[in-house]
């Protein structure tokens, strides 16, 4: 009468251990995904000239005649 009870308890215990093992494995599997979120990689592209921030293209186009004169009025500078 004692034997089946023991085995059932042992089975329950082993089942519990397996469950905890499984959750640990799941957590381990989730870990790389978590680290992926906070991973910081160095930029691959070279440092660029800081050009595209304050420039409105229509203004650049509008200024073409003015800058042509500017170049002519400042010999040696351009």
């Amino acid at each position: 009468m004692m034997q089946p009870n023991l085995t059932r308890e042992r089975r329950n215990a082993s089942l519990g251990r397996m469950a905890s093992l499984r959750s640990a494995l799941a957590a381990a599997a989730a870990l790389p995904a978590l680290t992926g979120c906070v991973q910081v990689t160095a930029p691959e592209r070279p440092i660029e000239i800081n050009l595209n921030i304050n420039i409105r293209q229509e203004v650049v186009v509008r200024l073409q005649e003015d800058v042509r004169e500017l170049i002519q009025q400042n010999p040696g500078v351009f």
């Binding site: 050009l51 921030i53 304050n54 420039i55 409105r56 203004v59 650049v60 186009v61 509008r62 200024l63 073409q64 003015d66 800058v67 042509r68 500017l70 170049i71 400042n74 500078v77 351009f78």
Partner: peptide, 29 residues
């Protein structure tokens, strides 16, 4: 330095930024 002075003057006359005048001049250069 001379370029920047020239850009600054034109920018103030044309209601543009110094960078815009400079970039526009680069097109001609």
């Amino acid at each position: 330095i001379q370029r920047r002075a020239a850009y600054t003057q034109l920018a103030s006359q044309r209601n543009a930024t110094i960078e815009e005048v400079a970039a526009a001049t680069a097109c001609q250069i």
